[in-house]
Design a binder for these strands. Structure first.
Length: 888
DNA sequence: TCCCGATGCAA
DNA sequence: TATTGCATCGGGA
């Protein structure tokens, strides 16, 4: 007889949720314990009973026929907590991915659907198994239909058929309904007969068999008290029985073929399990999937490396190194602290080369880094820059990059926020891999008293294995998507350059910063005093909330925009109030000064390494959606320059001894890229003639000669040029230029009239993106833009702007990355000691040995200008100085 | 303690 | 209601 498992979805997830002592929650804040318990229970049922069919019944919010019969039905039942309510839709997604049928029907409870299905199944010759935490469903038991009732949450269960039920309760499943009709049910707010409890109800049922029969023979009922109660509440008892009766005649279509258990949608399931961090289920899924016969799943092909089968060598003595040479591609993972303030300590290095896994215990080896530098190997890693950084700190200088799985994934999809090896391992390999923190939490923290070698060795092998397997999978996708150029020509060669820039660092004069800090502190004190005086009270000037209240409530200034919390106090609002009150300029001044002090003085000083007096910023290659680099701790890409007061900070950034700073910045790189990509004749001609591009734009749009263009007109044209790059709107331009929307609209029209090719280019980007879901840069870098086909107007508008901006910003990023690689290589090839230390989107800075200055200036300019050939010349402007301040 | 909104710095 | 970032602060969960 084929079994069909019929599961009470709401009941089971409720039980699971309350059974768990500790809440389960993912790092993204999704509660998962209900789902987890549910799935465990389901797995157990599958294993123990091997049903051929399965269906899950859910309740709907809509009122049922019981509510209509008795308005108090289920009144006062406490609602599902929101944490659990959030889990239900996710569970439903999982069931869908498992290809398990779900049923729900307006006007009926899950009980009724379950009863109806069970009855139908039985009549079709199946053996129904009902899985629930709800005792009421015991009434559905027959000689064939069995009820599995959860006990102690969901970890154990009892199985009842008709006989088991009679043994336990002494009456039949049907009598169970009569029993409830008499004693009622508090949880469903079924009244029953007041004063009749479990004892009396049991006695009455055993004697009279049913509620109807009891009422018919009420005269015989003893004792008198009970008789009176039954007489008085006969109607109530009948109604209670009706409420407690599960409807097995629900009008629903039952097609058992839909309930047949089949193969799940593995990819969907993996995605969901990954998101829910159900690593155990993930692992089980892998086993099922690879063990499955002929499902024809391409992802089930054998992995390149089986970490468990590698020969494992632990190198703890220098003598072992002497006998060892490595060649060719090597997966690597360096274990060390990622400290940028001091020399990072390296615990050990894991490496897979060929069929052998090596773990080098660096705490015991003295010649390891010299040895490693001599090996003719190319590295494959995940976030190799971090490994390189640590190795650079220990004397290695040259690296060959075979592959980086983090960078590769960034090239495949730059919109992700999580590039962790464990996430990618789940997605590509369907193997769970703990991240470093999880691993050491599970295996005991490393401390002074325990030898961590064993742990690092075990974990390193898993990591290196995953890297090699992941790399193979990614390479195929890189080829499919035609991303080879951007990956192999730009991103991978850049890894070493980024590591080197971090390692070199930027020398920073702490004394200058501290001196600046003192001056700023004095100014802040003075401004604070004056502001308090004008406000008539003391308050936190840094709090937009408090400041807004002072300005717009107490002083009664006209409020501009509102924010979610209150009045906007941003600079552009305050500037409009400049003449309205003397406190305004003081606030703006205070803002400027305190920004400088908190972010750029107080924030920067602790990041200066005491070892070498430099800041070693973190450059990140996988953060921006467009292909730019980003920079943190500190962010050297936003050091002030526009205002003189802030610009003075740059005096603290200085070259090393006997060195000078040499920098060069691309002139109008994004507009040049636009000229090239759009092929706009007017733009191209202006660039080729070496014209001032903003002045030339103004002249064309306004139809007057260049030499008649005023500074005001030039500055407007400049804003429009920026606007074009950003995918401008009339609204955006109008607020930027403080002109009416209509004027801005006309300006834009006039601009596009004179730059038809630009307009055409922009339209084409949007059109392409709508058709293909992505846009591309010069090197073929892609950015997927899901907003582009959104139904909401605003969202779609955003998508269109991204489609217009990304090819330009991204292509400029491509070009400077190529330039960085060329410059880095040129410095090395020419045997120079000068080093690239910073990139700021269109600018490169080299810490230059004085004696190498001319050579460096030449190679920097030349390599930047020849990085990529465009329809217009690339121009780089050179600067030099004794501090970053002087590079202007 | 962590997280988000507001703000402001850069290209 | 203009693109891409990061750091700081206040204030609330």
């Amino acid at each position: 007889m084929e079994r069909i498992a019929i599961i009470d979805g709401n009941s089971l997830i409720n039980r699971a949720y309350y059974a768990m002592r500790n809440p389960m929650i993912t790092k993204d804040g999704i509660f998962t314990q209900g789902i987890f318990g549910f799935l465990n229970m389901m797995e157990k049922i599958k294993k123990d009973y091997e049903p051929a069919y399965m269906v899950i019944a859910f309740d709907l919010k809509a009122p049922t026929f019981r509510h209509k019969a008795y308005e108090g039905y289920k009144a006062g039942r406490k609602k599902m907590p929101p944490e659990l309510a959030m889990e239900v839709p996710i569970l439903k997604d999982i069931l869908r991915a498992m290809n398990i049928k779900q049923v729900e029907l307006e006007g009926f409870e899950a009980d009724d659907l379950i009863g109806t299905i069970a009855k139908e199944a039985e009549s079709c010759g199946m053996e129904p198994l009902i899985i629930t935490g709800d005792k009421d469903e015991l009434q559905l038991a027959t000689d064939i239909t069995k009820i599995i009732l959860t006990r102690k949450g969901v970890s154990e269960f009892d199985l009842y058929d008709r006989q088991a039920m009679m043994d336990k309760y002494g009456f039949t499943p049907t009598q169970f309904i009569d029993f409830k009709g008499l004693m009622g049910d508090q949880s469903d707010n079924i009244p029953g007969i007041p004063g009749v409890g479990e004892k009396t109800a049991t006695k009455l049922i055993l004697e009279y068999g049913s509620v109807e029969n009891l009422i018919a023979n009420v005269d015989n009922v003893k004792p008198k008290g009970v008789k009176a109660k039954v007489e008085e509440h006969a109607q109530l008892a009948m109604m209670s029985k009706r409420l407690a009766t599960i409807n097995t005649q629900v009008p629903m279509d039952i097609d058992f073929a839909e309930y047949k258990l089949t193969e799940p949608d593995y990819d969907a399931l993996i995605e969901l399990y990954s998101r829910l961090e159900f690593n155990r289920f993930l692992k089980k899924l892998n086993v099922q999937r690879s063990g499955g016969t002929g499902s024809g799943d391409p992802a089930a092909k054998p992995l390149a490396v089986d970490a468990e089968k590698l020969e494992k060598v632990c190198v703890r003595e220098d003598s072992q190194l002497a006998e060892l040479t490595l060649q060719g591609k090597t997966a690597i993972k360096v274990f060390g602290d990622h400290n940028h303030l001091d020399v990072p300590q390296i615990e050990g290095v894991a490496a897979v080369n060929g069929d052998t896994y090596y773990y080098f215990d660096c705490r015991n080896l003295t010649g390891f880094f010299d040895w490693l530098a001599e090996q003719e190997i190319s590295f494959a890693g995940h976030s190799l820059k971090d490994d390189y950084y640590m190795l650079l700190c220990h004397g290695m200088t040259k690296f060959e990059t075979a592959f980086d799985t983090e960078v590769a994934q960034y090239v495949l999809d730059s919109s992700r926020s999580n590039y962790s090896l464990s996430a990618l391992s789940n997605e590509y390999l369907h193997q769970s891999l703990r991240d470093e923190k999880e691993f050491f939490e599970e295996n005991g923290q490393v401390d002074l008293f325990t030898d961590p070698t064993e742990q690092y060795m075990t974990y390193g092998c898993e990591v290196c294995g995953a890297i090699l397997n992941l790399a193979e999978a990614q390479k195929a996708q890189i080829a499919d998507q035609k991303l080879e150029t951007v990956l192999y020509e730009a991103e991978l060669p850049l890894v070493e350059v980024m590591a080197s820039m971090e390692h070199e660092g930027f020398r920073t004069d702490k004394k200058i910063l501290e001196g600046f800090g003192v001056v700023l502190a004095e100014q802040i004190g003075e401004l604070t005093k004056q502001i308090y005086g004008l406000a008539g009270e003391e308050f936190n000037i840094n709090s937009p909330l408090q400041l807004g209240n002072i300005l717009f409530e107490k002083l009664g200034l006209p409020a501009g925009k509102k924010t979610k919390r209150g009045y906007s106090t941003s600079a552009d609002i305050l500037e409009k109030l400049m003449d309205k009150h003397p406190i305004i300029p003081l606030i703006l001044e205070y803002r400027t000064v305190s920004k400088l002090k908190s972010t750029y003085v107080d924030g920067l000083i602790p990041l200066i390494s005491s070892t070498d007096g430099k800041v070693h910023a973190h450059f990140n290659q996988t953060v921006t959606t467009t292909g730019r680099i980003s920079c943190t701790e500190p962010n050297l890409q936003n050091i002030p320059i526009r205002q003189e007061m802030g610009r003075k900070l740059r005096k603290a950034f200085i070259p090393e001894e006997n060195c000078v700073l040499v920098g060069a910045d691309y002139s109008q790189i994004e507009l040049r890229v636009l000229a090239h990509m759009s092929g706009d004749d007017a733009l191209i001609e202006s660039f080729n003639n070496g014209e001032d591009i903003h002045r030339a734009t103004a002249a064309r749009v306004l139809g007057i000669p260049e030499d008649k263009i005023t500074l005001e007109e030039r500055s407007r044209a400049k804003a429009v040029n920026f606007g074009v790059i950003y995918g401008m709107s009339a609204f955006g331009l109008s607020s930027e230029l403080r002109i009416t929307r209509k004027d801005a609209d006309e300006y834009i029209k006039a601009y596009f009239a004179k730059h038809a090719a630009v307009k055409e280019f922009m339209d084409e980007q949007v059109k392409f993106c709508k058709a293909n879901g992505y846009v591309s840069t010069l090197l073929g870098r892609k950015r997927f833009i899901k907003e582009i086909n959104a139904s909401a107007y605003m969202v779609k508008q955003v998508g269109e702007r991204l489609a217009m901006n990304t090819p330009i910003q991204g292509s400029a990023a491509d070009i400077i990355k190529l330039a960085m690689i060329k410059v880095f290589r040129a410095l090395r090839d020419q045997g120079l000691r000068s080093r690239l230390i910073l990139q700021v989107h269109d600018e490169l800075i080299i810490n230059t040995r004085e004696e190498e200055k001319e050579q460096v200036e030449k190679l920097l300019t030349e390599n930047m200008e020849s990085a990529y050939e465009l329809a217009v010349k690339l121009k780089a402007d050179l600067n030099e100085g004794e501090s970053w301040y002087e590079l202007k």
